[in-house]
């Protein structure tokens, strides 16, 4: 019994250590994927809360960071869907309130360019170029086939080169 309690406490401590080591990095990655820093912080925190209740599962699978990243991405996708449905409902009823995003300092060129890409392309690009995952690893994490991931990477890269007006990006194919 005492041993179980000790293991339980140790697991909590390990989780807190894991959180302290990875939360900033994961927030940065989700920021690139989502293009919104506050949204990235919210979904990452929510993913860690979900991970806290499944600490044993996190430890068993051996890739807690990938688990948190996937859960945060899914949370963000479900939030997008909810917002889209709300916007459609607003449009059907009364005219929606005017919402114009003020350009803030966090609007980087790349993030702006990434916002114009489809969500899966953005995710694949971020996992490959930022998280240093291979095409196969990206395919495993996203649940897509390797050929689809390659297509996403090639098309996303071309689109970014066009948006960033940087021909070097398109000339350096590494996929």
């Amino acid at each position: 019994m005492k041993q179980e309690i000790r293991e339980w406490l140790l697991t909590v401590e390990e989780f807190e250590e894991f959180y302290a080591q990875t939360v900033a990095r994961l927030t940065g990655q989700l920021y690139v994927m989502l293009g919104d820093l506050h949204e990235a912080q919210d979904v990452v925190a929510e993913a860690y809360v979900k991970g806290w209740t499944r600490r044993a599962q996190l430890d068993r699978e051996g890739q807690p960071e990938a688990w948190i990243r996937t859960v945060a991405w899914r949370l963000a996708v479900s939030r997008w869907r909810f917002r889209r449905r709300s916007a459609e409902a607003w449009r059907r009823g009364t005219p929606p309130p005017a919402h114009v995003e003020a350009p803030g300092p966090e609007h980087l060129v790349l993030v702006d360019a990434l916002r114009g890409l489809p969500a899966q392309q953005r995710r694949s690009l971020t996992l490959h170029y930022l998280c240093d995952l291979t095409v196969e690893q990206v395919a495993v994490e996203t649940g897509l086939s390797a050929s689809t991931v390659k297509t996403h990477l090639v098309r996303g890269r071309a689109a970014l080169a066009d948006r960033l007006h940087d021909p070097r990006i398109e000339e350096a194919p590494d996929v």
Binding site: G28, A40, V111
Partner: peptide, 15 residues
């Protein structure tokens, strides 16, 4: 470019 963007978000994050 990706790293710069991620570093920007990482630095500004308030966990």
């Amino acid at each position: 470019l990706f790293r710069q963007a991620a570093d920007f978000g990482q630095d500004r994050a308030e966990p």
